[in-house]
Simulated scan of single mutants.
Amino acid sequence: MNFTIEKQLKHKSIRKFQNKEVEKETLDTLFQVANRTASSIAMQSYSMIRITDKDMKKKLSEICKQDYIKDFPEIVIFIVDVYRNARISEEKGEDLPHKKDMDRFFQGFTDGVLASQNMVNAIESLDMGTVYLGSILNDPQAIVDLLELPRLTFPIVGLGFGYPDQEPTLKPRMDVSLKLFENKYKKQDNYLESIKEYDKEMKQYYDLRNEDKPLDEFSKQVVAVLEIKNEKRSKLLNVVKSQGFNLKIED
């Protein structure tokens, strides 16, 4: 097994970092790695916003409802960015209606996700730690306002990283057989039976966010998560639409 795969198989989310800056040369390299990521039809319809202002980090932590974010050495927000190519076409004298369609939106969304994962792989190869911030979508409009995002852009995911100041144990994952199928989707006759061993494993895992109590069984976590109703997240498409994208939803 090579070095890269070893690192990927040991991936852990890190939420506490040393009070140590990431060197400029290292940052430049990481952003070049993101920049070289595969992109749908080479349109590169995403951008990255590095958050360095302390007040903005604090506001971001409030939106995400995760106080520790304000102390992260580095935060990068990946966004759908169709605005740039729309402007290029407009400056070429074209006002093309398809620039707003959902195909362009999902191209940018996918490009940004791929770039973020590429960057994570590079960061971890340098013995630094990372954590994804899906919580930026707790209030997408607040993120749009905070980052002053123009039309035809939309936040995708945040990434915090730096030199780790904690060593969490490896979090269990369900068996790959429940996620890997051949030729067609495979339904399980009884999912609770299929994840029985995984439920037991999860009960023995202690998350560093609550070191005194092991996590519940995965099946209980599923129910707990699906019980949560976040009005703002459930209306994400309204913000996508207000950012100028044409949803074209048909009844």
Rank of each mutant, 00 (worst) to 15 (best):
N2T: 11
F3D: 09
L9M: 12
S13M: 10
I14H: 04
I14G: 01
E21K: 13
E25M: 12
E25L: 10
D28E: 15
L30M: 06
N35R: 13
R36F: 12
T37S: 09
A42K: 08
M43C: 08
Y46A: 00
S47V: 01
S47C: 01
M48E: 05
I49C: 00
D53A: 14
K58V: 14
K58A: 14
K58E: 10
K59C: 06
C64I: 10
K65C: 12
Y68K: 11
I69D: 02
I69W: 06
P73Q: 09
I75V: 12
I77Y: 00
I79K: 01
Y83T: 05
R84I: 01
N85E: 03
A86Q: 11
E91C: 10
G93L: 04
L96I: 15
P97H: 08
K99Q: 13
K99V: 15
D101K: 01
M102C: 06
R104V: 06
F106T: 01
F106N: 05
G112N: 03
G112E: 03
A115F: 03
Q117I: 14
Q117G: 13
M119Q: 03
V120L: 08
V120N: 10
V120M: 13
N121D: 15
A122P: 08
I123F: 09
E124A: 05
L126F: 09
L126H: 11
D127N: 15
M128L: 13
G129T: 14
V131P: 06
Y132C: 04
L133H: 03
I136L: 04
D139W: 00
P140T: 03
E148S: 09
E148R: 09
R151I: 11
T153A: 00
I156A: 02
V157A: 07
L159I: 02
L159F: 03
Y163W: 12
D165E: 13
K171V: 07
K171C: 02
P172L: 02
P172N: 03
M174V: 05
D175H: 09
V176S: 14
V176Q: 11
L178C: 06
K179W: 05
L180Y: 15
L180N: 06
K184F: 07
Y185M: 12
K187F: 13
K187V: 13
N190C: 09
N190W: 08
Y191L: 14
L192Y: 11
L192S: 12
L192V: 04
S194N: 12
S194W: 01
I195L: 02
K200C: 02
D207F: 03
R209F: 09
E211G: 06
E211I: 11
E217G: 09
V222A: 06
E227R: 09
I228N: 12
I228Q: 15
K229G: 07
N230F: 08
R233N: 11
R233I: 06
S234Q: 14
K235Q: 14
K235R: 11
V239W: 00
V239F: 04
K241H: 09
K241L: 03
Q243N: 01
K248A: 14
I249S: 04
